[in-house]
């Protein structure tokens, strides 16, 4: 039964991804561009959801890994003629290595302290990149390679999403998910059950950082010009965190729903500069207040309520106290 559903889910995901590859044929250029942004945000959101939703690591250091990925991609492509897919893997790898290097210090921190620590990490990296001369300081780098077509970017993003889906599913639909959640729920109790909490957290952190790095690389490939304020900016961190919270933290498809909403909102609101981004703030507050499990959580609740078998004549049947 469970196996059959899992199979159905896998089929559905394959169908969706395959369907996405056809998007450029049907939608115009605009659809493809929105699609690209959506895919990048979904990958970032899923990575962050793995950390925060499954492993309890509420990180505010997202931008660090996006920035690292971006600089690696531009640096590598400018230095050598390397295929883009390999460069993207490189972006992810370097981000993952950085994650590995900082993890001993970061994982000493629990809860809020971890959150604040990752925030400091992101800021320190940004400040470093602004001052460092090898990376062009605040001026950043330009990509010398020819710029890719929108469709090509879109296909790379689909590839990235497919990879992310496989990796994250491998984490959240398998035995590993139980270990992840045990660390999230009570790290001390988990270690007393023999769980190598450090390794579990490290695995999640490295996987998430890899995906963030690769996504950052792809974004840099699209932009063609990168600098620390844009690539290491808090905006990434906040966007990713908002989209997961809006979609539904800890729900497998929360980031997907969240990314759709955040992108849609951003697109609509950018047309009304008078309203500025204040509306984003209002929406965030309202969603956090009234949909604690995000829009997806709200939707699932609604669906459950709609489909729940309700007694036709409850008054006669029920003696249960209210």
């Amino acid at each position: 039964m469970a196996g059959a559903s899992r199979f159905a889910a896998a089929v559905a995901i394959v169908v969706v991804i395959a369907g996405l590859t056809l998007l450029p044929q049907f939608s115009g250029e605009y659809g493809v561009q929105i699609g690209f942004r959506l895919l990048i945000y979904i990958v970032l959101g899923e990575a962050w959801n793995l950390l925060a939703g499954y492993c309890g690591l509420v990180s505010l250091g997202t931008s660090s890994f996006i920035g690292i990925g971006a600089y690696v991609l531009v640096g590598v492509l400018n230095a050598a003629d390397v295929p883009i897919s390999i460069t993207l893997v490189g972006s992810g790898l370097v981000a993952a290595i950085v994650a590995f290097v900082v993890s001993p210090a970061l994982f000493r921190l629990r809860g809020l302290y971890f959150t604040v620590g990752t925030l400091a990490l992101g800021e320190a990296l940004r400040l470093f990149m602004i001052n460092a001369s090898f990376s062009g300081g605040a001026g950043g780098w330009f990509l010398n390679a020819p710029s890719p077509s929108t469709n090509a970017l879109f296909y790379y993003a689909i590839g990235l999403l497919a990879a992310a889906t496989i990796v994250i599913s491998a984490c959240t639909q398998t035995r590993f998910s139980i270990l992840l959640r045990s660390v999230r729920d009570d790290e001390d109790a988990a270690t007393q059950m023999g769980v190598r909490a450090f390794h579990v957290k490290l695995a999640a952190f490295i996987i998430a950082s890899f995906l963030m790095g690769a996504a950052g690389g792809l974004q840099a490939y699209k932009l063609g010009a990168i600098e620390p304020y844009g690539m290491f900016g808090m905006q990434w961190t906040i966007d990713v965190l908002s989209l997961v919270i809006i979609g539904g933290l800890g729900l497998r498809l929360g980031p997907v729903v969240g990314a759709i909403i955040v992108i849609a909102l951003g697109e609509y609101l950018a047309d009304y500069p008078e309203l500025h981004i204040a509306i984003t703030g209002v929406i965030l507050i309202v969603i956090v207040r009234f949909a604690p499990k995000g829009i997806l959580g709200l939707g699932l609740q609604l669906a459950r309520w709609l489909t729940a078998p309700r007694p036709a004549s409850g008054a006669l049947r029920s003696g249960a106290p209210r």
């Binding site: 590993f176 139980i178 270990l179 045990s182 729920d185 009570d186 109790a189 059950m193 769980v195 190598r196």
Partner: peptide, 25 residues
């Protein structure tokens, strides 16, 4: 193996999954 004086189960996980934490680890 130890138990806690005030039980500390993984609250959001099922009883079975609570056990599997140890088994899988």
């Amino acid at each position: 193996g130890r138990t806690y004086q005030i039980p500390r189960p993984f609250l959001d996980m099922s009883v079975e999954e609570n056990l599997k934490v140890a088994q899988f680890s």
